[in-house]
C-alpha cells in the first residue's frame, strides 16, 4: 500500500484543521472497508489518513423523541443495527444496513462511509432517503446540512467540497402510522452488491386505509441513488390498494436509467424496479399497521 501519515484527532475542529492543511491530499478513515481497499488498489491517494474513530461525537448513535436520530459518521453498521431506538423507529434503515457485507464488514463499515463512497448501489442510501435523512457536513469555516438525496453526484463522487467532511447523519422521528422497508435483488443471499435496491416509506391515516404521504427511492439503476418523487407524491391521499401501489411502482420504474453490466441487464433491472418497489411499499404498509383494501 502507498505510504501515508496517520492522525487520530480528538475533535471535529481538529479534523477540519487537518483537512484544511492538506489541500485535498487527506482521506478520512472510519471503518476502512472501502478506503483501505481503494488506497491499496491505487484508486484513491492519500498523504494523510485521518482516523475519526476516537471522536465520540462522530462515533455515537443517539436518539431523542424531538430531534430524532443522529448517527455519527463513523458509527459501525453493527452499532447502528443493534441500537434499540434504531430498531424501533427506523425499520427501513435496519433492513438496508444489515445487508451490507458479512459480519466482519458490519463490525467495521460505517453508514457514513457507505454514503461518502457514493456508490450507485449502496444499500443504506435509498433507505436513508425514504427516512428523510440529512447529512451534517463540517468545513473549516462553516457547517451545512444537505438532504441525502442531494449528496451523491456521480459514482464515487459526493457533494462535499475540499476541506469538508461528514460529521453525522440526522434522521427525523417518524410521525403517525409510519412504516418503511428496503429490499434488494442479488443472485445469492449475502455478501453481494445490489442488482437493484428499493426503499419505501409510508404514512397512513388513522384507519390505515389511505396514504397520507409516501417516499420511494431506488439504488443501482442510475449513476446515483434516486428519490422517486413523482411515485411518492402519486400515493399521497390515495386509497391503500394494489392498483395504486402498482401505479406508483411504474412511476418509480420510469425514472430508472439502468445500465447493463456483469450483475444484470438494463432490461432486467428495469423489470426489477417495479417488482421491488411494489413489494417494498407493501412491506412498509404492513409495518405501518395497514393492509390492502380487498
Amino acid at each position: 500500500m502507498q505510504s501515508f501519515d496517520y492522525a487520530t484527532p480528538k475533535s471535529a475542529e481538529e479534523v477540519a484543521t487537518l483537512l484544511a492543511g492538506k489541500n485535498g491530499e487527506a482521506q478520512i478513515l472510519a471503518g476502512g472497508t472501502d478506503l483501505l481497499v481503494q488506497l491499496r488498489e491505487g484508486r484513491r491517494q492519500a498523504k494523510l489518513v485521518i482516523d475519526i474513530k476516537n471522536i465520540p461525537e462522530l462515533t455515537q448513535v443517539t436518539f431523542d423523541p424531538q430531534n430524532g436520530l443522529r448517527i455519527g459518521a463513523a458509527a459501525s453498521c453493527f452499532q447502528i443495527c443493534s441500537d434499540p431506538n434504531v430498531r424501533q423507529h427506523y425499520p427501513g434503515l435496519v433492513d438496508a444496513v444489515r445487508l451490507i457485507g458479512g459480519v466482519q464488514i458490519q463490525n467495521r463499515a460505517s453508514v457514513g462511509g457507505n454514503l461518502c463512497n457514493a456508490s450507485p448501489a449502496a444499500d443504506s442510501i435509498p433507505a436513508l432517503i425514504v427516512h428523510e435523512a440529512v447529512c451534517h457536513i463540517t468545513g473549516s469555516n462553516e457547517t451545512r446540512t444537505l438532504p441525502v438525496e442531494e449528496f451523491c453526484m456521480a459514482p464515487g463522487k459526493n457533494a462535499m467540497r475540499p476541506g469538508e467532511f461528514l460529521t453525522s447523519i440526522g434522521v427525523p422521528v417518524p410521525q403517525g402510522n409510519f412504516g418503511a422497508s428496503y429490499l434488494r435483488f442479488i443472485p445469492r443471499s449475502e455478501m453481494d452488491i445490489a442488482v437493484v435496491g428499493a426503499g419505501a416509506s409510508v404514512v397512513l391515516n388513522a384507519e390505515g386505509k389511505q396514504f397520507v404521504s409516501a417516499r420511494i427511492a431506488l439504488g443501482a439503476v442510475a449513476p446515483t441513488p434516486l428519490l422517486a418523487s413523482d411515485a411518492g407524491a402519486f400515493l399521497a391521499g390515495k386509497a391503500v390498494t394494489r392498483e395504486n401501489v402498482r401505479e406508483a411502482a411504474h412511476r418509480a420504474q420510469a425514472i430508472a436509467q439502468p445500465i447493463t453490466d456483469l450483475r444484470g441487464t438494463a432490461e432486467h433491472r428495469r423489470h426489477l424496479c417495479a417488482v421491488l418497489v411494489e413489494r417494498a411499499v407493501g412491506k412498509a404498509i404492513e409495518r405501518a399497521g395497514g393492509q390492502y383494501a380487498q
Binding site: 478513515l29 472497508t33 483501505l36 482516523d51 463490525n107 467495521r108
Partner: peptide
C-alpha cells in the same frame, strides 16, 4: 470482542 478482517485494519489502529 468483534470479528474483523485484519487486512482491513491498520496496525496503528
Amino acid at each position: 470482542g468483534r470479528l474483523v478482517n485484519s487486512c482491513l485494519v491498520l496496525a496503528v489502529e
